[in-house]
Nucleic acid binder design. Structure first.
Lengths: 140, 140
DNA sequence: TGGCATAGGGATAATTTTATCCCATATGGA
DNA sequence: TCCATATGGGATAAAATTATCCCTATGCCA
């Protein structure tokens, strides 16, 4: 088990929410479960980029945070089903909004994200790209 | 400059959005700017937990991603003002929703988050806590 | 017997993100 | 001269997150 060394910042609601959604696949997992993809193996198939390990870990954190419930059927090939708790379900509007925003701005975002590998000093060029993209965004 | 080694996952809108908001202070920074806190020093004062360095870095990423624009006044204690771009502004409903959700569920979240330092194997106990908290949540 | 499916998790490496510390600019005031 | 203001960013350490690899369990099927 990993133990945090830096105190969590949870003074404002934003940080609390961020903490719950903090994990590469957590929003996607919650969304999958909300769409009735309940079994770990199904979820895994849904995200080819994710490892079984990571999904397990993130599912467990979501469970620990009370966003999902786990139901284990005592069978042998084991069967497990996750479902959203009430509070987990109440996150869906946010997650759907994030999904829609990303899709709606996909072309713009893909470009600026790729063009901004990370902080580099030629911020002028990214600005230009941004302006160009913004125009395309407003026109197209 | 830092260069990413693992390909970004940007297949679904969720991941695009996540990438833009990915940074400990980014949502909070955007929210501050939306509330007319424009100058870096003001923003810094707003978040005692943040370092000047991190804010600089995250502001620069937000700028690179086209969420904010930077206006530099050629003075000598320099003066800089950030403002939201149109697309940056369009994130505000999501950010506000995150903030409200976190605040609305604060007591529950604080408890489960603290009680789930990270993945530990006694998932039974966290479940119990969750159930207890859920009751308190529904009652109180 | 050998392999597949389903799920869980330990150990450790690699990657990414944050934190710390320090230097630079140029002007005004004590 | 020394300090404060305001902003930017390099270098490097520390911490947090993900990725890799591997082992467990057990019933079913060829």
């Amino acid at each position: 088990m990993y133990e945090r060394k830096t105190p969590l910042t949870i003074d404002c609601g934003l940080h609390l929410t961020k903490e719950v959604l903090n994990g590469k696949w957590k929003p996607a997992i919650l969304r999958a479960i909300s769409m009735d993809v309940k079994r770990p193996s199904e979820i895994l198939r849904l995200f080819p980029g994710a490892t079984r390990r990571v999904l397990n870990v993130q599912l467990k954190e979501l469970e620990g945070h009370g966003m999902v419930t786990k139901k284990t059927y005592p069978q042998m090939p084991p069967k497990v089903e996750y479902s959203l708790t009430e509070i987990g379900y109440s996150l869906m509007p946010i997650i759907e909004a994030m999904n829609q925003w990303g899709d709606a701005n996909r072309s713009f975002l893909e470009t600026v994200i790729k063009q901004t590998p990370k902080i580099n000093e030629t911020s002028k060029s990214t600005c230009l790209i941004y302006k160009r993209m913004k125009m395309a965004h407003e026109i197209g």
